[in-house]
């Protein structure tokens, strides 16, 4: 996989979430994603960025334009050094939340994109990688 360009947005407060998804929408539009895909990507970015604010307090979202096997895509990496997720399986289950929310964030974000990877270590932090390919 080749990264063609990337932008890093530091996430600390609620308005950083808005900034991240606006940047994501702009990048998606430039790359030629359809209006619907732009909205899906913006929503996915919003979910993973919101998780950083809600559970880790501080982190980063990196948005990149990538190429792999002749196809182009948008990659979102949300990284934090927060408390980590003890049970990844449980966190990926619909309706499960430790934060009093709808519990739709992570499983929902997964359904909004094509590829989804979650790695988390308790006490070290969490990295969520999402990819959506141009059709």
């Amino acid at each position: 996989m080749v990264v063609l360009s990337d932008i890093t947005i530091s996430i600390e407060r609620e308005h950083d979430i808005v900034a991240a998804r606006q940047k994501g929408r702009e990048l998606a539009a430039r790359m030629g994603f359809s209006g619907t895909d732009q909205t899906l990507l913006a929503t996915a970015i919003s979910e993973v960025a919101r998780n950083i604010v809600s559970y880790a307090g501080r982190g980063t979202v990196v948005l990149s334009s990538v190429e792999e096997q002749g196809r182009r895509g948008l990659m979102i990496i949300a990284e934090d050094h927060g408390p980590g997720i003890a049970d990844v399986g449980l966190a990926m289950r619909d309706g499960y939340s430790t934060g009093g929310s709808l519990g739709a964030g992570l499983p929902g974000a997964k359904r909004l994109v094509d590829d989804f990877e979650l790695s988390s270590t308790v006490g070290t932090g969490t990295t969520v990688t999402l990819k959506k390919w141009l059709r």
Partner: peptide, 14 residues
């Protein structure tokens, strides 16, 4: 509710 937003809400499972 726009078509795009409707699709993302369904995908989110809300």
């Amino acid at each position: 509710l726009s078509a795009d937003v409707a699709q993302s809400l369904v995908a989110l499972g809300i």
